[in-house]
């Protein structure tokens, strides 16, 4: 019990962010025309590429003499980069097609 409480207490700021972000996410997506569902999903896909920050931190903190650690961190950064770069470029390609259209809706 004490453990659980202290866990929640030590992360109070994080919990606030978590709860507020859930509401923000719901609000942002609500009432989006179905035309944009695919690009939106792709855009969200790119944004969760933020996990790459974690991979960078792991690699930065890795022991330069521990090759297993280095290799795994290296791999994690590659995977994260694929997610970020691929995600944003694909989304951009999809959205590029909407630009010439007279803006309706």
């Amino acid at each position: 019990m004490q453990e659980t409480l202290s866990f929640i207490g030590s992360h109070m700021q994080m919990w606030y962010i978590l709860i507020l972000m859930i509401f923000v996410g719901v609000e942002v997506i609500n009432s989006v025309p179905s035309v944009l569902h695919t690009p939106l999903m792709s855009g969200a896909n790119a944004i969760h590429g933020v996990v790459i920050i974690g991979a960078i931190i792991v690699l930065l903190n890795a022991d330069p003499n521990n090759y297993v650690e280095l290799l795994l961190g290296f791999l994690a950064v590659i995977l994260g980069t694929l997610n970020v770069v691929g995600g944003f470029v694909v989304t951009d390609r999809m959205l590029e097609m909407f630009k010439k259209k007279p803006a309706k809706k």
């Binding site: 996410g25 942002v28 569902h37 969200a44 933020v50 996990v51 974690g54």
Partner: peptide, 30 residues
């Protein structure tokens, strides 16, 4: 998104938490 958010908790990293939860919640609605 949720996996990224748990990384945010791990490192006390707020941008990972924001991005992760945002996608987690928006993705669910979508």
């Amino acid at each position: 998104g949720l996996a990224a958010a748990s990384g945010g908790f791990l490192y006390h990293n707020k941008v990972m938490l924001t991005g992760g939860i945002l996608v987690g919640s928006a993705g669910t609605i979508l």
